[in-house]
Design a protein around this nucleic acid. Sequence first.
DNA 1: ACCGGCAATCAACACGAGTTGAGGAGTTCA
DNA 2: TGAACTCCTCAACTCGTGTTGATTGCCGGT
Lengths: 335, 335
Amino acid sequence: MAATRADVARAAGVSPALVSYVLNGGPRPVSAAARERILQAVEELKYRPNKIAQSLRGSRTHSIAMLMPDHLNPHFAELAQAVENESFANDYMLMIGTTDNDLTRELSYLHSFMDRQVDGLLLISATAHPDVTSITEAGIPVVLLDRAPPGSLFSTVVIDNRQGAFAAVQHLLGHGRKSPVCISGPPDIEAIIQREAGWSDALTASGHSAPLPWRTSLSRQGGYAAMRAILAADVQPDSLFTVSDVQAFGAIRACVEAGQAVPRDISVVAFDGTEAGLFTQPRLTSVDQAVRSIARTAIDTLLGQIRDQDTSPVHHVLRPELRLGESCGCQTQRQ
Amino acid sequence: MAATRADVARAAGVSPALVSYVLNGGPRPVSAAARERILQAVEELKYRPNKIAQSLRGSRTHSIAMLMPDHLNPHFAELAQAVENESFANDYMLMIGTTDNDLTRELSYLHSFMDRQVDGLLLISATAHPDVTSITEAGIPVVLLDRAPPGSLFSTVVIDNRQGAFAAVQHLLGHGRKSPVCISGPPDIEAIIQREAGWSDALTASGHSAPLPWRTSLSRQGGYAAMRAILAADVQPDSLFTVSDVQAFGAIRACVEAGQAVPRDISVVAFDGTEAGLFTQPRLTSVDQAVRSIARTAIDTLLGQIRDQDTSPVHHVLRPELRLGESCGCQTQRQ
DNA sequence: ACCGGCAATCAACACGAGTTGAGGAGTTCA
DNA sequence: TGAACTCCTCAACTCGTGTTGATTGCCGGT
C-alpha cells in the first residue's frame, strides 16, 4: 500500500541506491538533476522509509524500553512522562512494560523487548532476579534506576534514599515528635531498604530506638491497611514516615476515618514528592525525587552507551530535597 | 550475537526451512527425528526468532499504539494501565505516545507509529484535526475513545458523557444546592462538550438557568486556578461540578485555602471516578468511567478489526455510574 | 591516441525470517 | 518393472532497506 524506495526510484527514473543516497546523505555524490527528480518523486508519492526494514538492515531500531512497577502510583506515572518526554526529544520511541511485581510478567516483557531489538533498556525498581541479568547479558545497554548493586556492570541512576529519608524523619523529630512509625514497602527493592535505614538512622541519632517498620505494598490500599493495623495496635504513634506518597495518601485516609487529625494528632512525612501531594488536604511534606532530573540523566547515559557501546558503566547519585507541606505540622503560606 | 534460524539449521544438520516448519507448524509435516534435533538445537542455542525480520516478511508487527494526552492525569494513567494489561494478555506490545494537546507532537507520533507499522491504533481524546484522519486513511485499524464523530469510519468506544454528567449534577441538586458552577475543559474535545451539556441539562430541567462554564485545562493546576477565579468573582456558588477528577482536586484545594469547607460550604461532584478520588479528604463523589471495561472493549474491537481487516466500524456506548463519596454532602460509611 | 582519474550511477548482496515450487527417497499398485 | 503417489526436504524467492564493488562516461594530461 505505502510507496517503497523502488517505487520512488521508478518514478524518478533512477536506481533504488540513488534514492538512499539522497535521503541519507550517502557516501557518494549525486547529481543535482537526479536529486531534484528524486525529491520530487518522494514528495508526490509521500514516501517514508520503512522503519522495520531499516531496523533489519541496520540493527538499530531507534527505540528503547522501560520496565516499571505500574502506572497507578503517580510517582511512576510522573517518571514515565518525564522519560517519554526525553525520549521524544531525542527521537526515540519508548515502550513501557509494567510488572506489578510479577516475576513471570517481568521476564516475559524482557524477552519481548529483546525480540524486538530495542536499542536500550531502562529498569526501574525491578526485582533483582538472576534471570534478569542473564537476559540482559546479551550486550544491550542497560541503565538501572533506584537500584545499585555494588560493582554493577550496568550504569545506575539513583538518589540518595538514605539521606533523604534521614532528613525527612529528622524534620519530624524537629517538630517535637517522639514516636514516628514507618510504613515501608517490599524489602526486595534496594531503594526501600535504604529509606528504612534513613528512618532508623534518624531515630537512633536522636537517642530513640527504632521499632520494626510496617511493610506493605507501594499503594494507597497498602498505606491504608497498614495504618489501620497500626491504629488497632496498642502503641499510639504521634507521627508517621512512609516510603512513598501513595502510602501516605492511604494512611492519612485511615487516620481521618479513625478520628485522628493530620497533622495535629499524627504528623506525616512521605517520600516521592509527587505533584499529587501538592493538592491534598493537608499538603504532603515529602522528599522530592526530582523525576525530571532522574529522567534526563537516565536517558542521557543510556543514549550515550548506545552510541559508544563499550563505555564503562557510570554511577549517578542525585541528592533529593525535602519539600514542605502542612502534613508534618509546618505552617506554610495559606496565601 | 544472538543465534539465527540458520545457526539452528546448521547445528541440527537441516535446512532453515525445516526450522520454520517445526516452530510455526508449517504447511508440511516434519519427521520425528528432524523435529527432535531441531528442538534440541533451539534449546541449546537459546534461539528466539527475530521479531523485526518476522515483521518485515509478514507485515504484522504484533504491536499496537495508543495516543493519549498525558500520564499525569490519573484517569489516563489508569486507562493506560488497563489497556496495557489487555494488550499483554493478548500478547501485543503497546506503544504509548502522549500529546499534551500539542498538534505537532501528535502528528509526529502518528507518523512514527505508521513508520513502525503498528497493527492498530487507539486514539484517546485526541484533537480532531483533519491531518489525523488523513494519516490513518492508510488502512490501519483505528479505534477512537471519548470521541464519536457522527458517521465515523472508525470504530468508537465512548461512555454516555451527557447522561453521566446529568446524573451527577442532579445528585448535587438533590442535596438542595441551588447554584452549581461548572469547571470544564478544552472545548475541542467531544467528551467535554457532552459533559457540559449534561450539566446544563440538569440545571434547566430543575428550572435553573445555566451560567457559562469555566473552561480550563484538565489538570490540578487548571482546577485550582479556575476555583480561585470563581471565588474571586462576585457570585458565591454553593456547589461545583468539574468535568474531571484532577480539576476537582485542584478546586478543593483552592476552596480550603479560601476557608470554604467541602462539602459544608461548597459541595463537589466530579467526573472520572479515579482510584485517587477514593483516598482524598473528603472522598470524591464522581462519575465512574469504568476504565477496565473501556479498555477491554477497545482492545477487543481493535484486535477484531486487525484479524478481519474489512469489518464495518462498530460503535460502543458504555453507561457510567455515579460513585458516591462525601464531597457532595453524602454521609457515607465511616466504619 | 592512449591512459589515468574522477564523478556519477547501478546491480547485487546482506539483514532474518516465511513460504513455495521442485525434487529425492521410498512405497504401493498395476 | 514402471508408473503413480506419499512423505519429507531443500533451494530459492520475498519483504524494504543500506552499502559496496563494479561500470560507465567524461575530462585532462602526456
